[in-house]
Every structure is written in C-alpha cells, then in structure tokens.
Design a binder for these strands. Structure first.
Lengths: 215, 215
DNA sequence: AAAGCGCGAACGAACGTTCGCTCTTGACTC
DNA sequence: GAGTCAAGAGCGAACGTTCGTTCGCGCTTT
C-alpha cells in the first residue's frame, strides 16, 4: 500500500487521530475538484471517511470549513514571503517563491484554489476579514523588501512602489489562474526565466556606471 | 430617468423585444453578485422579470446560460485584440486594451466574472471547447503581434515568445482578479504606467552599456 | 457505569425543471 | 370591420431531487 499520502483518506492511516485535519484535507480535495458551492457535504463526508453526524462535531457549518480552508491557504502563501528576507536579491526571492509554489506535489491548495477563493472572497463578506488580515501583512512585507531593493539599487528608485506591487501580485495570481487552465505547464522550470523578466522590468535604466547589483 | 441601461430589467424598456438578451443580461448580473452555483434560477427569473416557464423557453438549462455567457465573455475579450493590429507598438496596444477593459461602465462581464469563469472552465468539461476555441485564436493573434514587435526591434528578439505570452496573459488575468478583490483600484488610469513597465521588460538590453545579467 | 465519538436515517428547505393553463397576437372568414 | 380561432408566449404552482443540517441511538473507551 504505497499510496498513503494522497489516498482517499479512509479511516486508516496516521490522520486517524486528527479528525479536523482529515475533514479539511478531504474538503480541500473536493473543493478543488468541484468548487465550493457545487460540492455537497455528503461528498466531503465520503471523502473524509466520516458520517455527517461525525463531521458536524468538528465544524458547525459548510461555511466554517470554507473559512478554515481560506485561512490555511492564506497563511501558507504568507509563509512563502520568508524568502524575501533570506534572499540576496528580490529577483532571487521571487524565483524561490515561485518554485516553492509550483514544484510542490501534490500541488499546494493555494495554487489549486486560488481563483475559486478570489471569487468567493469578493462576494462573501464573512471571508473578507480572514482574507484581508493576511493580505495587509503580506503587502507590508513586500513593500519593505521592495523599498530595500530600491535603496540597494537593484530596483529603479523612480518606480512607483504601488504600481510595482500591483504588477507582482497580479502576476502571481495570474500565473496560478493559468495553471488551473493549463495544468501541463512546467511552471516550476519556467520560474527563473520569469523572474529574470521581472528583473528587467524593475532594473534601473542602463546606468552609465556599472555599479551593479552583483555581490 | 437616466438609469435605463443598468436597471433591473423588468418587463419595460427596449429589451422587451429580445428575451434571450434579457435573460443573459440578468443572469450575468446575478452571477457577478453570487457566482454560478450559488445563484438560483429563481433569482435569475426575478432579475429578468420573467417566470421560470418563460425562461425555459429560451434556454434548456442553467448550464446552457452559463455556456452562453462564457461564450460572450470570450468574444468580447477577443475583440480587444483588434488593438494589436491598429496600434503602432505593442506597448501602445496593451495600454489601449487595458483602458478599454477597465474604463467601461458598467464594468465588462469578462472583468467581473473572470476568476469565476476560470474556476468553472477548469472543472466543467462542457465549457472547455467553448473556452479553448477562442483562447487558441487569441494566442495566435498575440503571437503574431509579438513576432512582429521582435522583428521591428521593439521587443528583444532573444526573448522566448512563449514565456512572454504567459507573462502577459497572466498579468491580464491577474489584474482582473485583483480588481475583483479591490474594486476601488483606479486601473484605467494606471494602464499607461503598467504598460510602460511591460515595455521595459520586453525592450532589448541597452545598446551602449552591457549590464551583466547574472546567471 | 459514565462519557462521548461516530453513525446514518431523516428533516425541512431550496434546488432546477416541468406542465397545464391563461392570455395575447395576428391572419383569415364573412 | 366584426368575429373566429390556431399558435405560441408567458405564467406560477408543483414536481422529484438533493441540499445542509439534526438527532437519537448504538458502540467504544475508560
């Protein structure tokens, strides 16, 4: 029985001990397959190997499960920002973040559910605070890194930081969206070249003095 | 009475004559508000000022309405590509396309429903052919324009066209997604600067000074 | 013996869709 | 022009199904 990690998660395996986790994982798989509103609780129960009665001991409603999943997605994505502080350059950080995002197997929930979550957050006010809290934090972290990169000369100081941030955020979201539409894209491999393109966009216009961004 | 275009579309008005149009417009408004699967047919009927019996004369099912809306969204987006042929530069074309996308009032369906449609297409095989047909056509048109821009020297001929296309496509989708999350963003005004950033990314490296691109 | 996890049948509500009816329309007869 | 009538647009109650959720009861564990 080698297929234990991505198995349908019946009542066997190490997750026997954490029913909440089991429900969340099962729900994520179902939601990826069918979306939030086209997935029934019975499906989630079946995927989790659990009866409705048992499941409702751990979550008061379907919406609570959705909120918990969005919460986890957000913090997973937020964790990627650690690369911003541990990398020498912004471009290197973006490369690492992208590779981490797209090389994970099974694919990360935030990659698979990105568009679904965006659509849901934009219309369900109960999800807004959950989403925004992390969003603001991420924006702040990125803004700091961007400012540092400008001070360092890696990024053109003349650039409007809000515009740059919108571009990078949009690119990230957009790539996840396109991955849903074309799962065969070898995104992890493409990250270095994509990050290089971003680097060209942000770099100061050809300086007469080549005091470069190199070490 | 200036509010005739975005009215709830009761049985009055000039659209009295085209019930199919009335249903599609009403459904689009409902789907933007609540998403495809969280919107009931009764809601659509109410919005269209029509009974279920009447509505089902024009569409055999809810899915047929969704398919028709996706079809329209695609062709509306595809129409934007005309700017590619009528503009002198790629950057100018992208600016015009972005401004057309985001300055329309009421906002275009493809802006409001973009993420929802992506999520739905990625999981409903019946939407795939509708989506892909236009997608392929758009990709081909953009590839042609990109090739021309490279020949012209506006875009670095050394760049991999597939990578560039992924970036531009992702950026477009990503900006629409972020607009859903932050509707207050003045996107139409930001387009020239965004397009300029894209231009910097694509431009050939400065001829006089060779800045060492690491890697 | 007590406690509580887990079960699955069952609930009321709401879903997408249908059906038999009324009302409107416009061409045809006289 | 008045009267007739077939055709179909539109209606809305009602259909069978499925939804999210509940509840009372066995079963396990201590």
């Amino acid at each position: 029985m080698p297929a234990a990690a991505a198995a349908p998660a019946t009542a066997s395996g190490p997750n026997r001990k954490d029913p909440r986790r089991r429900v969340l994982d099962a729900a994520a798989r179902c939601f990826i397959r069918g979306g939030f509103h086209a997935t029934s609780m019975h499906e989630v129960c079946a995927e989790a190997g659990m009866s409705p009665g048992a499941l409702y001991r751990y979550f008061p409603s379907k919406e609570a499960i959705i909120i918990a999943i969005v919460e986890e997605e957000r913090s997973a994505r937020s964790a990627l920002l650690a690369h911003l502080d541990s990398s020498a350059t912004l471009v290197e950080a973006l490369t690492l973040m992208g590779e981490a995002l797209f090389s994970s197997d099974p694919p990360m929930v935030c990659v698979e559910l990105g568009p679904e979550i965006a659509a849901e957050v934009s219309r369900n006010p109960r999800l807004r605070p959950v989403f925004d809290e992390v969003e603001d934090e991420m924006d702040a972290a990125f803004l700091r890194a961007l400012e540092a990169a400008q001070a360092r000369g890696e990024v053109d100081p003349a650039l409007d930081r809000d515009h740059v941030m919108l571009m990078i955020n949009a690119l990230g979201d957009g790539i996840m969206l396109r991955r849903r539409l074309q799962p065969e894209l070898p995104l992890a491999q493409m990250m270095p070249q994509i990050a290089t393109l971003i680097g060209r966009m942000l770099a100061p216009p050809a300086p007469s003095v080549s005091s470069g961004a190199s070490r």
